[in-house]
């Protein structure tokens, strides 16, 4: 059985599989992750840490969600 992780996305408690990336969790919830400087919606694009389109805030730090593993109690802020 897959072990699960419990974390918080914009305050909402979410359970997901350990070993997956934060981007995979977020993309499945909503493809739009942030807005560009001109205010246009953006989502996961390269999925390998190059493009920075999937940046979100985790525990106050800016991370690329596609190269960030989900962890218990992570506080994730999407769409800043």
């Amino acid at each position: 059985m897959t072990e699960s992780v419990i974390l918080f996305v914009d305050g909402e408690q979410v359970r997901t599989a350990r070993g997956t990336t934060l981007a995979s969790l977020l993309h499945a919830r909503n493809a739009a992750l942030r807005t560009s400087p001109a205010g246009r919606p953006r989502g996961l694009y390269c999925g390998m840490g190059v493009c920075f389109e999937c940046m979100v805030r985790v525990d106050g730090e800016t991370v690329r969600s596609c190269v960030t593993q989900v962890r218990d109690d992570m506080r994730v802020e999407v769409g800043q």
Partner: peptide
């Protein structure tokens, strides 16, 4: 190409293979 839901072929590959998530 900047719309959420548009991604590289490699990104789709990683979502499915490594994470078990569907691109869409």
């Amino acid at each position: 190409w900047t719309l959420p839901g548009v991604m590289t072929a490699g990104a789709a590959q990683r979502l499915i293979k490594a994470n078990g998530t569907l691109p869409g």
